[in-house]
């Protein structure tokens, strides 16, 4: 059971990343893979700051700001230089690897006996469940409110019809840069939470992590596919559920004895299966 609780915790910690991918991929219609880099940055900065005696709250903020900057750079490269967003993301992600290594000064950093947001070794207490849950709920509420605000409407319209938003006095480039900034700051938040949850930061922790977010968003689509309403908050909840389900499925795979070295392969097959499942038409449904 412990095993599944850990999977749910991880799923909640990945909720921010899933919501970030939802913003870039579904709302803005931009495939952004800065994720691998901004996730690691969030984790690395948190690890470095905690080891150096900063408060966990400040470390989380710093992680989110770093992620936002990464997203803003990707957005600027994409819009100003008219570079394909995938390429812009790869450029930033690659550059971030060295920056992350320089920040940490070593490939990994354990956080032994350092209090963080989720657990305090000093008092021997673990608040992971409640704090991760509250984080996810607050994120859903805040993102829902943002997407319904006037600026949020402009952002959503940008992913729909650029000619429309331009004729409404909105600069679509600015919206894309803002959106990618928010998206990657959420990704970095996940990196920060995961580092605090697992108790160490690693320079390679972000490799291939973008697929977790994609998988979560796609599971969310499957969850909602027969729903009558497509209200935004339902979509956000579905993404968070997708994050949890994704981790649970992986945990189950490991639990039935699949070699952990095949974890990435399992992840790839899992996402492929979700995509395939999403394409099956249930003709019996009215």
């Amino acid at each position: 059971m412990e095993f599944y609780l850990t999977a749910i915790h991880q799923g909640l910690a990945f909720a921010a990343l899933g919501l970030g991918i939802f913003l870039s991929l579904r709302i803005l219609n931009i495939p952004d893979i800065t994720t691998d880099g901004s996730y690691t940055s969030g984790g690395i900065i948190t690890a470095w700051m905690l080891v150096n005696g900063w408060s966990p709250v400040i470390a989380v903020f710093a992680a989110m700001i770093a992620g936002a900057i990464a997203g803003i750079i990707t957005g600027t490269i994409h819009t100003r230089l008219k570079v394909h967003p995938l390429l812009a993301g790869i450029i930033v992600m690659t550059g971030l690897y060295s920056i992350n290594l320089a920040i940490l000064g070593r490939p990994n950093q354990p956080l032994i006996n350092i209090d963080n947001l989720l657990m305090s070794p000093s008092t021997n207490s673990d608040h992971s469940s409640i704090i991760l849950f509250v984080f996810s709920v607050v994120l859903i509420i805040l993102i829902n409110a943002f997407l319904k605000s006037d600026m949020g409407i402009a952002l959503r319209a940008t992913g729909n019809s650029e000619s429309m938003v331009k004729s409404m006095g909105v600069n679509p480039d600015k919206m894309k840069i803002i959106g990618l900034g928010i998206s990657n700051s959420l990704t970095a938040l996940s990196g920060s939470l995961i580092v605090q949850y697992q108790g160490f930061g690693d320079i390679n922790m972000g490799i291939g992590i973008v697929i977790s977010g994609l998988g979560a968003v796609m599971i969310g689509d499957v969850v909602l596919r027969n729903a009558v309403s497509r209200k935004i908050y339902l979509q956000l909840i579905a993404v968070v559920l997708g994050c949890i389900l994704f981790r649970l499925i992986l945990a189950t795979a490991l639990n039935i004895g699949i070699d952990p070295n095949y974890l990435k392969l399992i992840t790839a097959v899992l996402v492929l299966s979700i995509i395939a499942f999403g394409k099956i038409k249930f003709t019996s449904k009215a």
Binding site: A145, F146, D150, G152, M164, V165, M168, G169
Partner: peptide
């Protein structure tokens, strides 16, 4: 809503 703000800025208010 977006059209009603064509000449104005789109803020964070609802």
């Amino acid at each position: 809503r977006l059209a009603s703000l064509r000449t104005r800025s789109k803020s964070l208010s609802i």
